[in-house]
């Protein structure tokens, strides 16, 4: 135990602190996923529109999200936007803004893909039955797309949880930051804590993400 540096977890509340840090990461990703799903559906419906402007704008939006690393976006929002607009937002809000910006694009694209894959006859039939466009979406199209979307959005949750590891860079005390603090505090008494603590953090991330991604692939196979 001493050699692997696992002893630090039994000192004080170290392990609980680590779990607290993990909760911060999970909380940020859950809030962002919720926002992404709600706005993403709206954006996805908008993306299926035939208007040229909307097509160009959504193409640019998707390309920005595809190309810019999330870390860059975090820096732009947390350091850049606060400087330009002279407002004051907390690191956690910045993280949620960035993750939602990213999630809305991904969800929007998924929703758009799912909507397009619905056969045209479904739209035509509901129109023939005299349903308004809003009714068609609400009662016919959305219920069919939701099934295809649920596994994909669950996948998005795991990717967000993984990406939350970056938020330590803008000063949020999440699991990695707590891990570093524990290591620093115990540097003298337990020099090998670096190994034990990072191994446990590795394991914690895996234990959270793995079941969720299993669930996603199970649902994907089952509802395909």
């Amino acid at each position: 135990m001493q050699n692997l540096g696992l002893d630090v977890f039994f000192k004080g509340t170290n392990f609980l602190r680590l779990l607290d840090g993990l909760w911060v990461a999970v909380r940020i990703s859950l809030i962002s996923v919720a926002i992404s799903i709600i706005l993403g559906i709206a954006v996805g419906v908008l993306m299926t529109s035939k208007s040229r402007i909307i097509k160009v704008v959504s193409k640019i939006y998707l390309e920005i999200v595809r190309i810019m690393p999330q870390m860059v976006l975090l820096f732009i929002v947390y350091f850049g936007s606060t400087r330009v607009f002279r407002w004051n937002i907390s690191a956690e809000i910045s993280a949620i803004i960035v993750f939602s910006f990213w999630g809305v694009a991904e969800m929007g694209d998924l929703v758009r893909g799912a909507l397009i894959s619905i056969p045209k006859i479904q739209y035509e039939s509901s129109e023939a039955l005299g349903m308004a466009a809003s009714q068609t979406y609400l009662y016919i199209i959305l219920p069919q797309t939701v099934r295809r979307l649920i596994p994909l959005s669950i996948n998005l949750i795991t990717r967000m949880i993984k990406t939350t590891s970056l938020v330590m860079m803008i000063g949020i005390v999440e699991v990695l930051k707590v891990a570093q603090q524990i290591i620093e505090a115990n540097r003298r008494v337990s020099p090998n804590a670096t190994f034990g603590v990072f191994a446990v953090v590795f394991l914690l991330y895996f234990l959270i993400c793995w079941p969720i991604s299993r669930l996603a692939s199970y649902l994907e196979k089952r509802w395909a």
């Binding site: 795991t158 993984k162 990406t163 939350t164 590891s165 970056l166 990695l176 891990a179 990072f198 191994a199 953090v201 590795f202 991330y205 895996f206 993400c209 793995w210 991604s213």
Partner: peptide, 10 residues
């Protein structure tokens, strides 16, 4: 199922 940052730290 683990972030690159954690893998790198490890």
């Amino acid at each position: 199922n683990t972030p690159l940052l954690v893998q790198l730290f490890f």
